[in-house]
Simulated scan of single mutants.
Amino acid sequence: MNNPDSISVLIIEDNRDLAANIADYLDERAYLTEVALDGVTGLHLAVTNRYDAIVLDIMLPGIDGLTLCRRLRQDAQSNVPVLMLTARATLNDKAAGFAEGADDYLIKPFELRELDIRLQALIRRSRMGERSQQLKVGDLELDLGTLALRRSGRAVELPAMPLKILKLLMKRSPNVVSRREIEQTLWGDSPPDSDALRVHMHILRTAIDPPELPPLLRTVRGIGYQLQEPDASTA
């Protein structure tokens, strides 16, 4: 990497000796490392801080690595690269890790140099992808890499669920997205009561459509919702 001093890595590994070895090796190469020895602490750090990559063991106390990765992707909507560590070497084990959102897989025991090489590759691909992953509808812009949202040049903050809805609407704009599709995106085949989606849509509308700006979010009665530029509206 060209700027290793700017790389931050979270190591979530309950084996203290292995976690220390990884941290020491990466620290010597000018990475900035942080260590969590259980899944609960690891998930908290992962969603409250920004890291360039996460090294994640599967067998963890508190929350296992597979569950942690799934919650990171689905609940926190995080795109941080995840390198999973495990002693499980079967194809099914690897498939389970990738299915939950892991980006790469390293079988124990492993060489620390290989860990470094894989981290560099993951971070390089992530940074390249972040530069190109931009969604834009009118003056509303969303960076899929950093999840930074701006309307008319001003930063907008959104909770995870409304942000997930917004990403879907922006990707499908100017098409109408049905309530059913939004509910499936959020909750799969087990949506809560109908008021839940209404609450999330209210939060989204309030955040992205302030009174002083023309509205982008449109309710299509009996069908769903639509995100489009104001001058494209036919309502």
Score class of each variant (00 low, 15 high):
residue 189 D to L: 03
residue 134 Q to W: 04
residue 35 V to A: 04
residue 115 L to Q: 00
residue 124 R to C: 02
residue 92 N to H: 12
residue 6 S to W: 05
residue 8 S to D: 06
residue 41 T to E: 15
residue 7 I to S: 02
residue 56 L to V: 00
residue 126 S to H: 15
residue 85 L to P: 02
residue 183 E to R: 08
residue 101 G to Y: 11
residue 1 M to H: 12
residue 6 S to R: 08
residue 229 E to H: 15
residue 169 L to G: 02
residue 171 K to S: 13
residue 118 R to W: 06
residue 166 L to H: 10
residue 133 Q to L: 08
residue 154 R to M: 11
residue 121 A to R: 09
residue 19 A to W: 02
residue 171 K to I: 04
residue 67 T to V: 11
residue 79 N to T: 11
residue 139 D to Y: 05
residue 176 V to I: 15
residue 214 P to E: 15
residue 48 T to P: 01
residue 22 I to E: 10
residue 85 L to S: 01
residue 192 P to R: 05
residue 142 L to M: 12
residue 152 S to W: 14
residue 102 A to C: 13
residue 111 E to H: 13
residue 94 K to H: 07
residue 185 T to Q: 11
residue 211 P to M: 01
residue 32 L to F: 04
residue 66 L to G: 00
residue 81 P to G: 11
residue 227 L to T: 14
residue 138 G to F: 03
residue 130 E to H: 08
residue 83 L to P: 14
residue 184 Q to F: 02
residue 186 L to T: 14
residue 83 L to V: 07
residue 132 S to V: 10
residue 64 D to W: 07
residue 189 D to G: 02
residue 183 E to T: 13
residue 123 I to P: 08
residue 154 R to F: 12
residue 157 E to D: 15
residue 150 R to T: 15
residue 100 E to T: 13
residue 182 I to R: 00
residue 25 Y to S: 03
residue 34 E to R: 13
residue 66 L to S: 03
residue 13 E to T: 10
residue 191 P to Y: 01
residue 143 D to I: 05
residue 218 R to Y: 13
residue 139 D to N: 13
residue 102 A to I: 04
residue 176 V to S: 02
residue 3 N to M: 10
residue 21 N to G: 08
residue 49 N to L: 13
residue 159 P to D: 09
residue 228 Q to T: 09
residue 145 G to L: 07
residue 33 T to S: 09
residue 134 Q to D: 04
residue 113 R to C: 04
residue 44 H to I: 06
residue 56 L to C: 12
residue 71 R to F: 00
residue 49 N to V: 05
residue 65 G to W: 00
residue 221 R to E: 13
residue 228 Q to V: 12
residue 16 R to V: 14
residue 200 H to K: 15
residue 125 R to T: 10
residue 84 M to D: 10
residue 58 I to L: 14
residue 36 A to C: 12
residue 197 L to D: 05
residue 5 D to K: 12
residue 140 L to I: 15
residue 95 A to N: 03
residue 159 P to N: 08
residue 106 L to R: 00
residue 57 D to I: 00
residue 147 L to H: 08
residue 114 E to M: 04
residue 85 L to W: 07
residue 143 D to C: 12
residue 69 C to V: 06
residue 1 M to L: 05
residue 229 E to Y: 06
residue 133 Q to P: 08
residue 8 S to H: 08
residue 84 M to W: 01
residue 123 I to R: 04
residue 169 L to E: 06
residue 65 G to D: 03
residue 182 I to H: 00
residue 18 L to P: 01
residue 138 G to P: 10
residue 17 D to Q: 06
residue 221 R to D: 07
residue 62 G to N: 05
